[in-house]
Nucleic acid binder design. Structure first.
Lengths: 346, 346
DNA sequence: ATCACGCCTGGGAGCGCTCCCAGTGCCCAC
DNA sequence: GTGGGCACTGGGAGCGCTCCCAGGCGTGAT
C-alpha cells in the first residue's frame, strides 16, 4: 500500500498534467502508463518520474469509457447470504477466483441476488457495462439469468451446470462419479441397505449425486429401493428431517449417503436421537469435505470437490472469453474430478 | 428482470439516439432519464417511449466520468475468506448493508483483502475513483487502511472501532456492556469462579469484552484472578486450547465467558474431553448469538449483537457522507446496544 | 543527393454522458 | 404595446482517457 508523498492535492492529476511535467505529449504518457513498448527509454523515464512525483493514478471511469472495459468482474450468488456463508463451496470458490485474479488488474465484485429487485438492479448494472464479465455460481435449473447475460453479450461462466446439456460455458465437478465412489465405498465395507438424502432437486448437482448413488447400486447388482431415498434441501435441518423419515420408513438401513456435509450433520443428529451409533449401526458419508466433516463426531467420510481449483478454472475461462480467446467449445467447459476422503464415520 | 424486446442491437443505443428518436434534444432526454421535474409531459412521454423501444440503458462509465460518481460502494473485509465465511457477524452485516442499499441505485461490492498485493490493488482502485465509498469491517488495531482512505478523500465508515478514540466515522456495538451483562448473569446464577476466553487482543472488540468481564467482577465485588483469563483468537480451535489451559490452571472454575460463540464451541469440546458437564459443572456463555449457539448441546447462552442493524446504520452513515450530509461529529458515530440471550448452557 | 522505411512522437477525434447557459415562446401585468 | 417572468429546451463544453493518424527524424540503400 504505497502512499506517494506528493499526492496531497485535492484535485488528482490528469494524464495531461503528467505529460506536461514530463515534457512529452499525452499520447506518449499514455503509452508509458500502459506499458507500450514503442517508447524511447528517455521519454519513459521522464514520464515515470512525473507519475511518481504527482502521485498519478489513471481515472478508472475515463479509462473505462474510452477503452470500453472496466477491469472488474462480478461473482454472483443468487442465494440468500445465509446459505452463501454456511457452505464451504462458496468460500473455496471465492478463494480460487481471487487467487486467479491476483496478478491481473481486474477487481473482483461479490454480488448477492436475494430479491427480484436486486436481480433487476444487477441486470441494469450489466447492461450499463459496469463489469467485463460474470461468474455465476449455484444456479438453479430454470434460472434465466445466464441466458439474459448472453443476450446482453456479457461474458459469463457458470460454476456448476444447470442441466445435462448446458449451453453456457461452465466449470463443474464430477458429481455422479463422486457420489458413486461414496456409495461403492459403503458397499465395499459390507453395507447392504444404503439410503440417501438428496439435495434440492432443482439443482442439477443434486440430481447428479442421486444418479451416482443409483449407478453405484446398479453396478453392485444391488436393488434400488425408492423408500431409501429421502429429499433434503442442503440444510442441516433438512438433513435431520430427511433422516427421520428414512428411519421411520426403513428402520433396518445400515448406511446413508448425504448429498452434502451439512445434511450429514443433520442426519447425525437424527441418528443420535434415534439411538443409532455411527458407524457401528449406520455408516454415514457426506459430500463437500467441509469443515463440518472434520468436526463431526466421528469425523465424516466425505467427497471432496476441488473448489479452489474450480474457482481458478472459472476465472481462466472468463478471462479467455473477455479477451476474445474463445476457442472451440471443448475449451469452454471443464469437468474436474472429485475424491473420496474416508474417515471414521464409515 | 426485464428484457426489452427491441434490445437486440449489437451496439447499444446512446442518449443521443434516444433523443433523436424522441424528437428532442440530448439535454431533455438526459433530464427525463434522470427524473428531473422540469420537463413537459409531452417530451417526457416521447423520451420514455424511445427508451423503451430502443432498450436504452445509460452507460455507466460515461455517467461516472461526467458526473464524478460511480454508484457503487465497497464492503471491505481485511481477512482471509475463511474467517469471513465462518462468522455470523459478516453475514449479518452483508445482509444489513444490502437491505439499506435496496432502494438506492448503488451497487454493493464485496472485496477481500487477503494479501499485501490485494491491498495495493484495492488502494489503486480507490485512487482511480472506481467507488463512491467504503465500508470497512473488522479492522485490526494498527491497520493504516482507514487513514489511507481518508487521505484519498474517500468516504469511509468502520464497522467496529480500532481503539477508544477512533477518529474515522464508525458504527459499533456495546461490547463492554454485553460482556458485563453476560458475566453479571453468571454471578446472579451463583457462579463464583468465572473464567474468560478472550479474542485476539489486537481487535478492540476483544479488549472491550475483556474489559466488560472485569467490570462485572468489580461491580460484583469479586476478585479478578489473572489465571482465569486465557487468550483465544476467535477460532474454535483457539477456544478449545484456551479452555484446556484454564482447566489446567484452575480446575475448580465453575463458569466461562467466551468472547465468541465459535470459541465457546471449542471450549465445549475441551470441557467434554475433561468430563465436565455443562451447565451442571461449568456454565458457558458465548458472544454473537450465532447459529453455532443454537446448535450447541446444550444451547448456548450468548450476547446478541444487532448485526443486521449495524450493517444498515453503517450504510446510512456512508450514504450521508457521500452526499455531503456530514453533520456534527455526533452523527458520524453510532453505538448500538447488545442483548443477553439466556439458554441452557448457564 | 534522394528515397524509402522504421522508430517515436504529438495531438485530434472521439467514448457517452452531465452540467449549464443562452435561448425561445408564452402569459400576464402594467 | 411593452416588459418581465416563467416553463421548458437545445446543444456546447467539458469529464480524462485511448486510439490512431500524420508527421519528424534518423538510417541505410540506391
Amino acid at each position: 500500500m504505497t502512499a506517494p508523498g506528493a499526492a496531497r492535492h485535492t484535485r488528482r492529476p490528469t494524464l495531461e498534467e503528467v505529460a506536461a511535467r514530463a515534457g512529452v505529449g499525452r499520447g506518449t504518457a499514455s503509452r508509458v502508463v500502459n506499458g507500450s513498448p514503442t517508447v524511447s527509454a528517455h521519454s519513459r523515464a521522464a514520464v515515470e518520474a512525473a507519475v511518481e512525483e504527482l502521485g498519478y493514478v489513471p481515472n478508472g471511469s475515463a479509462r473505462a469509457l474510452a477503452a470500453g472495459s472496466t477491469d472488474s468482474i462480478a461473482l454472483v450468488v443468487p442465494e440468500s447470504e445465509t446459505r452463501l456463508f454456511a457452505e464451504p463451496y462458496f468460500s473455496g470458490t471465492v478463494s480460487g477466483v481471487a487467487t486467479a485474479l491476483a496478478d491481473t488488474e481486474k477487481q473482483l465484485l461479490l454480488t448477492l441476488l436475494r430479491t427480484p429487485k436486486e436481480r433487476e438492479r444487477f441486470a441494469r448494472y450489466v447492461r450499463a457495462r459496469r463489469i467485463d464479465g460474470v461468474l455465476l455460481v449455484s444456479m438453479h435449473a430454470g434460472d434465466p439469468l445466464p441466458e439474459l447475460l448472453q443476450q446482453y453479450e456479457m461474458p459469463t461462466v457458470l460454476g456448476g451446470r444447470r442441466s445435462a446439456d448446458e449451453q453456457v460455458p461452465y466449470v463443474d465437478c464430477d458429481n455422479p462419479g463422486g457420489a458413486e465412489a461414496a456409495v461403492a465405498h459403503l458397499l465395499a465395507r459390507g453395507r447392504r441397505r444404503i439410503a440417501t438424502v438428496t439435495g434440492s432437486l432443482d439443482l442439477y448437482a443434486a440430481q447428479c449425486r442421486l444418479e451416482g448413488y443409483r449407478a453405484a447400486l446398479r453396478h453392485g447388482d444391488h436393488p434400488a429401493d425408492p423408500r431409501l431415498v429421502a429429499q433434503g434441501d442442503f440444510t442441516e435441518e433438512g438433513g435431520r428431517r430427511a433422516m427421520g423419515e428414512l428411519l421411520e420408513r426403513c428402520p433396518q438401513l445400515d448406511a446413508v449417503f448425504c448429498a452434502s456435509d451439512l445434511m450429514a450433520s443433520g442426519a447425525r443428529l437424527a441418528l443420535r436421537e434415534a439411538g443409532r451409533r455411527v458407524p457401528d449401526d449406520v455408516a454415514l458419508v457426506g459430500f463437500d469435505d467441509s469443515a463440518v466433516a472434520r468436526h463431526l463426531d466421528p469425523p465424516l467420510t466425505s467427497v471432496r470437490q476441488p473448489v479452489e481449483l474450480m474457482g481458478r478454472e472459472m476465472t481462466g475461462l472468463l478471462l479467455d472469453q473477455i479477451a476474445g480467446r474463445t476457442g472451440e467449445s471443448e475449451a469452454r467447459r471443464r469437468l474436474l474430478p472429485t475424491e473420496l476422503v474416508p474417515r471414521g464415520s464409515s
